[in-house]
């Protein structure tokens, strides 16, 4: 079960007609680093044409630039990060991040870790985990470039996060996933349903661990850049039924996630999740969870 036709047909059954897209490049201003600096004016002065992303605070599409926006002095000084539009959304769904203890369970290469630190204004603590040494180096470089001060990094599998002996107010699960064709032009050639199911199992293990270490009044934001329901709606349906979690209604870009997948009826609350089909952004799936109240 693989190939372009197989997957495109699945998308059709989920209500989306396939069209090839190439998402525009986007940047996110690191507000903590630009106090007193008009970064937009500086970039315009360099000839970079930007357009505000209407549904994101501090996010801009790069419409035109004669050079890489990753090679400016302003970038090197941590004034902004290059971050795909949909990837900027998950962190914004946490309420009241200042001073909190936050777990970024699959953190490298660190774009969302920096965004968390920015929204936390470098207060509280971010515990950032990843397993790949090369990606951890990239994470450390990002933290240094963007002047993040509130983060501690461990080489640790997210499925073993309880080893730290901590409970968290907020947990970001930007889990490893199968990706999507919009950012990976060879996607249909490489991916099979078996890959998707393997990733879905790994994601469920990470969700289960996160549920264990979440404080009673804590929040989890779960995100993938996969379009496959096994990694998205089906995993959330499983989490709601097995981990004592419930979904929370979110207001963000994207459409309501389907609650019937290939003829299988899911918990109605899965509709609180957001599915983003490729177009203005790459493909994405986002969900906010909290512990179900007892009694």
């Amino acid at each position: 079960m693989f190939g372009r036709e197989f997957f495109v047909n699945r998308y059709r059954l989920l209500g989306w007609e396939f069209r090839d897209v190439t998402p525009k490049q986007a940047i996110r201003v690191n507000v903590m680093n630009v106090k007193g600096i008009n970064i937009l004016e500086r970039l315009r002065g360099l000839g970079v044409e930007l357009e505000k992303i209407p549904f994101l605070h501090g996010g801009y599409w790069v419409l035109c630039s004669d050079f890489s926006v990753g090679a400016t002095v302003e970038y090197l000084l941590g004034y902004y990060s290059i971050q795909e539009v949909a990837a900027q959304i998950p962190v914004t769904l946490f309420a009241d991040l200042r001073g909190k203890t936050v777990l970024d369970a699959c953190a490298a290469p660190g774009g969302k870790t920096v965004q968390l630190a920015d929204l936390m204004e470098n207060t509280g603590v971010i515990v950032a985990l990843d397993v790949d040494g090369r990606r951890l180096n990239a994470l450390a470089n990002q933290l240094e470039r963007c002047r993040v001060k509130n983060t501690i990094v461990y080489r640790l599998d997210a499925r073993k996060a309880s080893k730290l002996g901590l409970k968290f107010d907020k947990i970001l699960l930007d889990v490893p996933c199968s990706g999507n064709f919009a950012t990976d032009k060879g996607w249909f050639r490489r991916r099979t349903l078996a890959d998707v199911e393997r990733n879905a199992r790994l994601q469920r293990e990470i969700l289960a661990e996160a549920a264990e270490i979440l404080k009673e009044d804590g929040e989890i934001v779960y995100a993938t850049c996969s379009l496959e329901p096994e990694e998205n709606e089906l995993n959330i349906d499983w989490a709601v039924k097995n981990l004592g979690l419930e979904t929370v209604e979110i207001k963000c870009y994207g459409e309501e996630a389907p609650t019937e997948i290939f003829g299988r009826k899911l918990d109605d609350s899965v509709g609180n999740c957001r599915r983003i089909w490729p177009g203005e952004t790459q493909g994405f799936f986002i969900c906010k969870l909290k512990k179900r109240e007892r009694g």
Binding site: G124, V125, V127, L136, L139, A140, L143, R147, K149, N150, T151, I152, V153, Y154, R155, L164, G165, L166
Partner: peptide
Amino acid sequence: SPSLERLARKCGDWLFAGT
């Protein structure tokens, strides 16, 4: 920071912390 220092002492096997 003082809170990171407490955490670093409790869970010592970290790679990068603070500034």
